[in-house]
Amino acid sequence: MDTRLAERTTTLETLLEARGLNKQYKREDGSPLQALADVDLGIRRGEIYSLLGPNGAGKTTLISIISGLLAPDSGQVVIGGHDLQRESLAARGLLGVVPQELALYEDLSARQNLRFFGRLSGLRGRDLEQRIDDTLAFVDLTERQRERASRFSGGMKRRLNIGIGLLHRPQLVYMDEPTVGVDPQSRRRILDSVLRLRAEQGMTVLYTTHLMEEAQEISDRVGIIDHGRLIAEGRVRDLVLQAGEQDRLEIDLMDGSRLEAGLLQELERNLPGAARVQLERSDGQGRLVVHADRGRQVLSPLITALGTAGLEVRSVTVQEPNLETVFLQLTGRALRD
């Protein structure tokens, strides 16, 4: 492997490092399709990293390469100091995969499924049985461990699917949209499980999802990929700032008709950080909308100014910019498109 990269991987406590990944496919008409273009990616030990991208962005290709299922045209992937191409088995031994589609044997019981994949990962004997017990408890399937997976509900299958990926306690676990198609209760349980993995076992998680609120809730860092390129990467808050989006304050007034144009201009001039102030009227109701860099800091002087003007506030809402808006701004598409 590239010694310098391996050393750097270790010293920076970067568990996964991908550098200069390129992958090109041929379309049916023979023309080339650049699925990945010079992608660099680094995931640190113990962090939860969410990879976001619209369909066809190159997310699946990147994950397939990181999982060892696909070879890049050029570039290098190092997991835990092992080059994925040259030390494939060692690198893959550090990786656990939880695919989006349920990848388990329906005709085997939960325990048999775990035992099969555990043995493939090199676990044997008491150690294997102990880990199976632990995993069944972790995904809350101990009571149903002897039943065939085909009899499980969708949420239970999904939990078993997660358990298989975690059984051998990988250093890095990749979870591909693990909450798709599950009820809110199971979804909450899965998200809590991911947070527990990091908190209790120090596991590093590479997470993909279509749900921005999920990514925002659990991620330490987020990467956004589009057209085969990693176009943004960082903490959610930093990405939001980087995107230049502002907070939006909505103040519903008891009697909006009393709000004068002069007051609007005065607020826009005097409120610190306020970029734009406007009035939205409907059915005699009035709503004051303020765009500001730091909405919460504007809130107090705003309420004071309105009170001074004799306007009674009915409700206040602060909408901070989120990943959805950042994603939309960066890619021009909503994530679900």
Partner: peptide
């Protein structure tokens, strides 16, 4: 089609 092949190949199985 079930994805178990891919899953097996992501373990230390050639």
């Amino acid at each position: 089609q079930a994805g178990t092949l891919q899953r097996i190949l992501t373990t230390a199985t050639t």
